[in-house]
C-alpha cells in the first residue's frame, strides 16, 4: 500500500514538473520562433524569400539547361524587373554586370540616381543583348541557378532562387533564397527585352 501511495505521489510530482517544464519550453519556443521570424524578415534582405517555387529543368538550346515554365501565374513586369536588378538588397546584378539601358537612367545632376543606376561592375559580361542570345527559358535558368545554367558550374554568379549555398550562411538568411519567384519572373522579363 505504501509503495502504491509513494509511486502515486512521485508520478503526480513528476508529471506536474514535466507539464510545467513542457509548457514553459513550448512558450519560450513559440516566442523565439516569432523573434526569429521578425529578425529574418528584416535582416536578410529586401528581396529574400523563404518559399521556393517548384520548377522543371529541361535542356536548353544555347545552354545545357533551361526552365520553360514560368515560376508564377502572374506574368513578369519588366519595369519592376529593372528596379529589382538594380536594388542592392535584391538582385544587385549591377555589382557584376554592365547594362546600358540602366546606365541611361542615371541622371548626372542627381547623386542618388547616379548611385543607383550609374555604377556597374565588370565581373560578369555586359547584359546588353542577352534577350537575343538566350531564350526566356534559359534566362530563367540563369537567374534561378546559374551553376546549372552555364557549362562552367564553377561560376561566381549567385543562385537567386535555389538553396545552393553550402557554408556559413548568415543565420537570418538560412533556408531563404535571394529573390522571390515573382522577382525572378520580373527580372527575366526585363532581360528578355534587352535585345
Amino acid at each position: 500500500m505504501r509503495t502504491v501511495i509513494r509511486t502515486f505521489c512521485v508520478s503526480v510530482v513528476a508529471s506536474a514538473l514535466l507539464l510545467g517544464l513542457a509548457s514553459e519550453t513550448f512558450a519560450e519556443h513559440e516566442n523565439k520562433k516569432k523573434v526569429r521570424k521578425v529578425r529574418a524578415a528584416s535582416a536578410c534582405s529586401a528581396g529574400s524569400s523563404s518559399s521556393v517555387a517548384r520548377f522543371k529543368i529541361e535542356k536548353g538550346e544555347a545552354l545545357p539547361a533551361s526552365i520553360p515554365k514560368a515560376l508564377t501565374k502572374k506574368p513578369g513586369n519588366a519595369e519592376r524587373g529593372l528596379e529589382a536588378a538594380v536594388n542592392p538588397g535584391k538582385g544587385n546584378c549591377l555589382a557584376c554586370h554592365h547594362i546600358a539601358k540602366v546606365l541611361a537612367k542615371a541622371d548626372e545632376s542627381d547623386p542618388e540616381s547616379v548611385k543607383l543606376y550609374g555604377n556597374h561592375g565588370e565581373v560578369g559580361p555586359p547584359l546588353n543583348g542577352v534577350g537575343a542570345r538566350f531564350s526566356k527559358a534559359e534566362l530563367r535558368m540563369i537567374v534561378v541557378d546559374p551553376k546549372k545554367a552555364f557549362p562552367d558550374a564553377d561560376t561566381v554568379m549567385p543562385a537567386y532562387h535555389a538553396r545552393t549555398a553550402s557554408k556559413d550562411v548568415k543565420r537570418a538568411c538560412r533556408g531563404r533564397v535571394m529573390l522571390s519567384a515573382q522577382s525572378v519572373e520580373d527580372i527575366v522579363t526585363f532581360l528578355e527585352e534587352l535585345k
Partner: peptide, 13 residues
Amino acid sequence: TTRRGQLDMSCAA
C-alpha cells in the same frame, strides 16, 4: 578559397 554565405562566394573569387 571555400565558398560561403548566401551568395556562395569565396574570398578568392
